[in-house]
Design a binder for these strands. Structure first.
Lengths: 116, 116
DNA sequence: TTCACATGTAAGAATTCTCTTACACGTGTA
DNA sequence: TACACGTGTAAGAGAATTCTTACATGTGAA
């Protein structure tokens, strides 16, 4: 992962995933060790459904990895851990990533302005 | 700027500013040289008011710098250029930034769930 | 059976983001 | 005067994000 060259779309997804204080806190907490959802929710102090949603976003971006495991007493536990990502944000790195942006170019239409 | 240690709040603002395809494209385009708003809007293919808004967001995050200049024929031209930022995104870098998150801790209240 | 604990997900409200349209101002030139 | 070009900004619609509440499932122990 270190020094990877993400595509524009991947980069946007990663940045969007990390541009939220709570999600940043989740990654930071998991950087201290893996944890399962319910416990992590109590540690961070958010509701479990909310944490579940944010973890989904982080996992979709490839920043955390989850695995469903069975504890000794038979409970289904979903453990999450951080992926060891390494992204560099510089003007030239962004310029390179933009080359591979698909972006479905919004729904922006004619783009002419102030038609007089 | 290179190798800077942003505060959590700064980092969130930077990431939010870059987590948009159009803004990424703006930074990438400006990385190729400074330009003024109206021309940049034509180059990228978006309306000037829209570009204006995105440039504000990028400038607020410190990623681009604008300067109002007077052209030879007396027109007010606002030129923008990229700041030479360099952010590293790794789990430990994020963990460090999170320590300085103020975040006004959302409006999340009791955070107890499924009250039975 | 009931409780405590784990999981997942759907519905709705409140807020924020994105974008268009429309207005304001200024200058130099035809 | 009218046009072409530059600037800024405000109002509103539509879409996406964020969060709560409420429901569903499962296990083991009292």
């Amino acid at each position: 992962m270190t020094g990877s060259r993400p595509t524009g779309d991947e980069l946007v997804e990663v940045l969007a995933a990390l541009s939220n204080p709570l999600r940043l806190r989740i990654v930071a907490t998991l950087a201290g060790g893996r944890d399962y959802v319910s416990h992590l929710a109590r540690v961070i102090g958010v509701s479990r459904p909310l944490l579940h949603m944010h973890l989904q976003r982080l996992e979709a971006a490839g920043l955390v990895v989850g695995s469903l495991e069975l504890s000794e007493d038979g409970k289904a536990m979903k453990y999450f851990e951080v992926a060891d990502f390494d992204f560099t944000l510089t003007p030239s790195a962004l310029a390179e990533a933009v080359l591979t942006l698909t972006t479905a170019d919004q729904k922006r239409g004619p783009a002419r302005e102030e038609p007089s």
